[in-house]
């Protein structure tokens, strides 16, 4: 071991962290080494003066404590608010699902009704019905003997439909009469085409 190693042991001994075996080795060296002996004396002098250096005490410990207490109470109150908030946040998916269900029920009840059939069909629509019927009859007309009979039945069903549609919703008898005349004209136009 070199003197620098023993000097480290001297430092450890000052801190009370040198084990007994190390102390014995050091003592033996100090008896023979003047330089290390002097080093130890100087360190001891410094150590004593070091420990005597004035220590700074808090000027107002009570004020320091009061300030700390105030801050801790504030921290505690804030932490409680945060806890409540986080509980609400944890329930957020439940709230969202509930809200969604309420909105879906509302939508189904008030907005998702089956569309009301528009019964005020105009002549053009009727003519498209008639075209479809005529196409059908033309197909059937492969058998010439049935042609006249089918035409008559088809036309009759159209006439009935027209009459039913145009007579619904009339309260005034004059309007009804006028519409009957119109219906007759439409019948005439339809038969003329055939």
């Amino acid at each position: 071991m070199k003197c620098s190693d023993y000097q480290k042991l001297i430092s450890d001994r000052l801190d009370g962290s040198l084990p007994p075996a190390g102390q014995r080795i050091l003592e033996a060296h100090l008896k023979t080494c003047q330089a290390c002996h002097l080093y130890e004396q100087e360190l001891k002098t410094i150590e004593v003066k070091l420990r005597k250096l004035p220590t700074a005490e808090p000027e107002n410990l009570a004020a320091l404590e009061d300030g700390l207490r105030e801050r801790l109470i504030r921290v505690e109150a804030e932490s409680k608010v945060r806890q409540n908030k986080s509980q609400l946040t944890k329930l957020a998916p439940v709230w969202a699902a509930g809200l969604f269900l309420v909105m879906a029920a509302f939508y189904l009840l008030f907005f998702n009704r089956p569309p009301i059939k528009d019964q005020n069909l105009d002549l053009a629509t009727l003519m498209s019905f008639e075209d479809s019927y005529l196409t059908l009859t033309q197909t059937i007309n492969g058998d010439g003997s049935l042609q006249e009979r089918y035409n008559e039945e088809i036309l009759n069903s159209i006439f009935e439909e027209v009459e039913d549609l145009n007579t619904e919703g009339f309260e005034n008898i004059e309007d009804y009469g006028e519409r009957i005349i119109n219906n007759n004209n439409e019948k005439y136009l339809l038969t003329e085409n055939i």
């Binding site: 000097q7 480290k8 450890d12 410094i46």
Partner: peptide, 13 residues
């Protein structure tokens, strides 16, 4: 720690 204190004492000396 021991080494740092030893070095600090050497510097103070």
């Amino acid at each position: 720690v021991s080494w740092k204190i030893h070095e600090a004492r050497k510097m103070l000396r």
